[in-house]
Design a protein around this nucleic acid. Structure first.
Lengths: 120, 120
DNA sequence: CATCGATATGGTCGGTCGAACATATCGGAG
DNA sequence: CTCCGATATGTTCGACCGACCATATCGATG
C-alpha cells in the first residue's frame, strides 16, 4: 500500500559542470546495458530514439570520455554497449541511490507524517 | 582548490506527487525566513518577484498546507514568513542534504578520479 | 552489390518556462 | 483620504525541450 521506498527523492550527481547523471540517464544506461541497443532501450523507456541518442551524446560529451560505445552496420547490424566507465558510473549511481535513501529515510517519514492530515 | 563539498549533487525530496522540495525551493524558503519578504528573498536570489511568488504558491498548494504565510499592507507594509511546517521542511531538507553528501562522498570522489584525465 | 537493422542527424511543431512589463489590492501610517 | 511598500495576478515574448517525421549512413552477410 505504500511505495514510499521507491521514489522518495531524485538524486542528481554533479561531477562537473557538464558531467552529471540523474535517474533518467541511469535508467537509460541500464537499458542499453540490458538490450545492447540505444533504440531498444529508449523504446522500452517510452522515449523516441532521438531523445535516447541525444542523452547518450550528452553523457559521452559531458563526461569527456564515452560511457556508451556504438557500432553501425556490422555483424549484429549495429548496436551499443556500455564502456567500462559506463558500467562504473551506473553501478556507483545505483549504490549512491541506495545510500541516500537510507540516509534520508527517517526525515522523509517525519515529513510525510507532518503533512498527512490534509483533506484534499 | 576543491569546492567539491558544495555541490556534488542535487537532491529533490518527493513526498507526494505535488509535494516536493529541491535546492532552489529550499534556498527561497531560507531567504524568506531571513528577509521576511518574498520579493526581498527573490531579489537576493536573482529572480523576479513573480517567479518567487509562484514558487511559494507551488509549495503551499503542493504541500496541502502553507509553508509560507503572507500579509499585505499592515504595519510593516506586508511581508512573508515561514510557518512552523515551513521551518520544519527547510530544516529537514538541509539535514538530508548533509546526510546525503556524507553518504555519497566516497563514490563521488571515485567517479571524479575515474574521469579526471581528459585533456579538453 | 543489394539488403537490413541500428546508428546518426536534421528540421518542424507545440507546449512549457522563465523574464519582463503592467496593474490591482491591501491596510496601517501620517 | 492619500501614500507607501509588499503581496497578488495577468499578459506577452522569446528560449528551450521533447515529440514526430524524414533521411542518410554504415558494414557484415548472402
Amino acid at each position: 500500500m505504500d511505495k514510499t521506498a521507491s521514489g522518495l527523492g531524485h538524486l542528481r550527481i554533479v561531477l562537473s559542470d557538464k558531467a552529471y547523471i540523474g535517474p533518467g540517464r541511469a535508467d537509460l544506461l541500464e537499458g542499453i546495458a540490458a538490450t545492447g541497443s540505444i533504440s531498444a532501450a529508449g523504446k522500452a523507456m517510452g522515449m523516441s530514439y532521438k531523445r535516447a541518442w541525444s542523452l547518450v551524446q550528452a553523457l559521452n560529451e559531458g563526461f569527456g570520455r564515452p560511457l556508451v560505445e556504438t557500432a553501425r552496420g556490422g555483424a549484429g547490424q549495429g548496436g551499443a554497449q556500455l564502456t567500462g566507465l559506463g558500467h562504473e558510473v551506473l553501478a556507483r549511481y545505483r549504490a549512491m541511490q541506495v545510500a541516500t535513501e537510507t540516509a534520508i529515510a527517517a526525515d522523509v517519514a517525519a515529513l510525510r507524517a507532518a503533512i498527512s492530515d490534509i483533506s484534499e
